[in-house]
Design a protein around this nucleic acid. Sequence first.
DNA 1: GTAGGGTTAG
Length: 680
Amino acid sequence: MTNVVIRRLIPGNANGLVYRLMPQARLFLRLITVPIYPNHASLQSSCFASASKPTSSADVKDADFFPLNKRISHLIRTGRIEQAREAFDKMKQRNIVTWNSMINGYVKRREMAKARKLFDEMPERDVVSWNLMISGYISCRGSRYVEEGRMLFDRMPVRDCVSWNTMISGYAKNGRMVEALKLFDSMPERSVVSWNAMVTGFLQNGDVVRAIEFFERIPQRDGASLSALVSGLIQNGELDEAARIVHECGKRDEGMEDLVHAYNTLIAGYGQRGRVGEARRLFDQIPYCHEMGKEDSRRFERNIVSWNSMIMCYVKTGNIVCARELFDQMIERDTFSWNTMISGYVHMSDMEEAANLFCRMPNPDTLSWNSMILGYAQLGRLKLAHDFFERMPQKSLVSWNSMIAGCEKNEDFIGAVKLFSQMQLEGEKPDRHTLSSVLSVSTGLVDLHLGMQIHQLVTKTVVADSPINNSLITMYSRCGAIKEAQTVFDEMKLQKDVISWNAMIGGYASHGFAAEALELFNLMKTLKVRPTYITFIAVLNACAHAGLVEEGRSQFKSMISEFGIEPRIEHYASLVDIIGRHGHLEEAKDLIISMPFKPDKAVWGALLGACRVHNNVKLAKVAAEALTSLEPESSAPYVLLYNMYADAGLWDEAAAVRSLMDENKITKHSAYSRVNSSHC
DNA sequence: GTAGGGTTAG
């Protein structure tokens, strides 16, 4: 995509291959020769000097409060919000900075109700108090919060550059670039941050052309501008190009302000692609100074984000040992560091160590709690997950989603439905994750009514992407509404992926519409959508339902020869069914013997079913015995065999089956109750 | 003490 953009930016570019590297090189050579301008902070303060000046009460000997203020901000930085609040409450006198620090603590944790309460109680506010609140609102998800931020922005008596930038990046993050641009254009004075926010916004919203256009116009580009661009390039798959540019800048613009931003972004980029070795080399290239004093943005050295990004790389690639090693070496850790480590252990299903860190962590935030919930839910430990869920101080959408998904995955469908309605009662709006889980719940419960309600919610509230539509297809077809499944499938148009095709072909197959299933399969191949092993399970099932023996055989062969897909036991089961039902019982038995798997109950079940159809009592006995050894408590094989003997007038044999059932304490009834209880 | 880089979900 970037290539396309760059080609468009540079005239006279006709040959994509030739230009793949050249134009980029030209473009970026320009950017790395840009002179370094004076620190933007000094520029800003001169523009907005009057706005940022604290009001009267702050004149009361700031130094007297300073040690305590510093302590509060340190507690907040290290995640100990409750201790910070304790210290705050105990202070006899507070100045604006005290209040702001406390508000900042809540804002960072997205606890906006608490932040707002303090903000409203403040005896007087300065521009930072307002900015903090705005930044808090816009960092919360959802346009409702952006509007809340905008209301404060409009109400505040004096705005500074930070107020504008906060608001711009808020719009940009929420994909509202028109509004972002409007503010950007009407700003009294821009800083490099305003420009960077716009670049990031355009890139996040897929407008690479304008991102580059803006980037080139930035009067004093810094490491964060570069980082914004690098992040966009990485998202567009141009990781190596991004790395080249960062290295060039590192060499040419020694002392470039905030260069570490770009390095950190690149480390994260390597991590995303699993190139952890290169990430580590980059990390080691950043000088490291043990003094954690006042940060100087011009000094190029590792900061806490570098450490966290590197730890993240290890976590993403499953290397928890190296992640832990770095984590233990850190001097100062923030909530990010702890959360990254916890989520790492959660991914390794090591809940013991995750819990260990969770307990040691100074003040777990919503994300920490969410990770724990997720971890327990994924392992099926729903009770524990629920305990955490109930005890967490503030639930987020992710908390609800993790709980609901956990219930769904562990087939506690009723629990999932309860949570879903509780969440709505508590005013939390479901998103695509929620709806996708609840759709699977409808499928699990075979509850068409619920499924249709969720479909309505999908239509009203989210832009349905492929996974959601695929869940809809599956839901409708499992609930017997094949027409509705087909409508969703047809409306997906170009959005269809292989899962959509599989779901629809499988839907037709299970409803006995073999012709439709095979027709769709042919269309899929014509459109060059590569089938998967799941496609072939559906195709073979369609053949089985329709008794298409030759078609089934040839599909099985083409799966191997044409698509190189190794047949799995499910494919064999289907083929046994196809061949057996057609009366080729010996061939079916030989297939079972020759297949490279230990036959499972589906395979023997297919043979037994075929024997029943063709009255082959001798082979039925073999299949039934195999089945009972696999599932000793199941009555089905006994009953089927009994009926076959009875039908053939073989009463002695029938009686023998009956007494074997008694001997093994098998009742027909117990089989039914077992099936029913699994649905409760 | 505030804005631009790094965390959780199908």
